[in-house]
Design a protein around this nucleic acid. Structure first.
Lengths: 350, 350
DNA sequence: TTGTACGCGTTATCAG
DNA sequence: CTGATAACGCGTACAA
């Protein structure tokens, strides 16, 4: 096993320890002061062309690269932000992450992926990164009911933008979400027009504003009877809830409206396994419009959420202020959703 | 618009600028030295309980949190690594990222998401993070043909692990990949057993070792005639290549073997649009086994790659050495793949 | 055009 | 049990 630490041998020091060249090493080798080296590289002030050339040559020879850490310390910011999400393998959050990464990259920021797996402890640890100022800001798209207190305290002191999910009591914040209420409304109208009168609504965890908004929009537009069951956004929970109702013989509905596509997939599977036909016997509607939604059989009718734009907008908002060192004012972006009518919905069975 | 910079007011300084409390502030307010404050918090050496209590009280009052940046500067490492991938919205890389994030989190490391969109310039910028030592290491899963020279130079000096993809000329490295050759072999055997004799093979970009390995395994096990077309791993390219061959009337094959599931989806769509039945007229096989593969119609026969494990293994390998400050020795992990036989393959049409 | 000196916030070392 | 000091590597105000 090789045991040498990383780094490069200093030209002027044959000690046993290799370490990366510092600005001092360059200065010494070029016969100038560190200040001059700094200015040659930054262009922040004019340097004699001969001197500059000599410095550059030494920089190349030693392979000197300024330590961004030291620069950050002195500058008071790291040009890195965090993106806190529950599950990167969920296509919705992957799209959101892509939007966030694009926006960050555009402004020269790095993005730390904070994947919480819905784990509060893990979320806490990641939030510590903003308190210890390792990140300049945080895009919070937890997806699970966040601890209001903690978040509230943090939002007063650090730049945090909310993506995809609002948080009760934090109205004065940077927020980018899809129009969940409109999404619910679109589904409600669609099912009503198809003649459905009794619908099973599978929700996500309680306490999510987006869920409330969706339900509100849906119930109001639908007007019929709504049976509600609480799940956790995972495919398994959609399957479990529907299977249980079927066993108990209590699924007297003609349609299922799931909180997201994954749960809709689970419901679909449970219905099919029970010998029911979708949409012949029962219609199914999802939410998110992840890629698989259009590819499953039957193709899923669902609400398209602009996941990429939600991530991009939240991040761009955040950085607009972070990059100026200002406290962001409240600012809410509600992005439009659309209903994708596919093969999983049909007129209500008589 | 609020214009106050972030931070907290110092208790002992009523200057106009709010800034976070530093260890000096705490020390002054508690009447001890910064050294003592440091040790109270780290527990690195015993501190008189009375003194410690006083310090802790001040820490709470001022809301002091150690600046991780300064700690990193002094420690010489940031406890953050980078994950360089082409596209986080590709389910394969999302899974890989999840594995990498889990492994990093387990060892107390953060993970910077470097999404390149197959863009060389963007990749370069991200690789700069390791040269400037903002990250302690990098997991490289580019997926596109990387610039060998650049990577080679970097790998000699910095801890880099290769995930999912080997790189020619870099045998002596940390590598975790799926067994692509075995994957190709499994597909070859499967199609041969089904009686196929002419297969269209859609590959990814040239110059990828994984592609060569797959093709080698496939061709050897299959034994029949293989027509090859080069794509770029995207759904559109699968569609385009197949559609073009169909137009030209040159698709005299009974099966298509795509380089990944996305391209297989594209091929599937093109075939269906041309009125061909899958697998009745022609069989289709993918690679990766992303979630949508089992949900598409017909369900896709494909090679399951352990994306999560590839990410997790590569990262764990990297960190095992990074965390000790050692140069990693060469070490290759080849993870097993399995063939998922689903509805998109059938005996060759006569 | 260039250099000196200091601060950023922390921890290790060495001395009491 | 505690403190003073140096060092990490950089940028820059100030001085020459």
């Amino acid at each position: 096993m090789t045991r040498e630490p990383y780094g490069q041998r200093r030209d002027d020091d044959r000690s046993a320890v290799r370490r990366p060249a510092s600005i001092k090493d360059v200065a010494a080798a070029a016969g100038v002061s560190p200040t001059t080296v700094s200015h040659v590289l930054s262009g922040n002030r004019p340097v004699n062309e001969q001197t500059a050339a000599r410095v550059r040559s030494v920089v190349n020879r030693l392979g000197y690269v300024p330590a961004s850490l030291a620069r950050s310390l002195q500058a008071g910011s790291t040009s890195v932000i965090g993106l806190l999400i529950p599950d990167i393998s969920n296509a919705f959050f992957a799209e959101l992450a892509k939007g966030a990464e694009d926006a960050a990259h555009d402004l020269g920021y790095g993005l730390i992926l904070c994947n919480t797996e819905f784990d509060a402890e893990r979320e806490d640890r990641y939030l510590g990164m903003i308190r210890s100022r390792f990140v300049d800001g945080m895009v919070y798209a937890s997806g699970s009911a966040p601890s209001r207190r903690r978040l509230e305290a943090l939002m007063g002191k650090f730049p945090i933008a909310l993506a995809d999910e609002e948080v009760d009591g934090l109205e004065r914040a940077l927020i980018a979400t899809a129009d969940h209420e409109a999404g619910g409304r679109l589904v409600g109208e669609h099912l009503r027009e198809l003649g459905h009168r009794r619908v099973l609504m599978l929700t996500g965890p309680r306490g999510l504003r987006s869920g409330v908004a969706r339900a509100t929009g849906f119930v109001r537009a639908f007007g019929g009877h709504v049976v509600e069951r609480v799940g956790d956004f995972k495919e398994a929970s959609g399957h479990r809830l529907v299977a249980k109702l079927l066993e108990e013989g209590g699924l007297d509905c003609t349609a299922v409206f799931a909180a997201n596509d994954l749960m809709a997939f689970g419901a679909l599977a449970a219905l099919t396994e029970a010998g029911l036909s979708v949409p012949g016997d029962i219609s199914v509607v999802g939410f998110d419009d992840i890629r698989a939604a259009s590819q499953i059989n039957p193709p899923l009718t669902t609400v398209h959420q602009p996941a990429y734009d939600v991530g991009r907008t939240a991040t761009a908002q955040l950085l607009q202020y972070v990059s100026r060192g200002e406290v962001p004012p409240a600012s809410r972006h509600t992005l439009p959703v659309t209903l994708k009518v596919r093969g999983s919905t049909a007129p209500a069975a008589r």
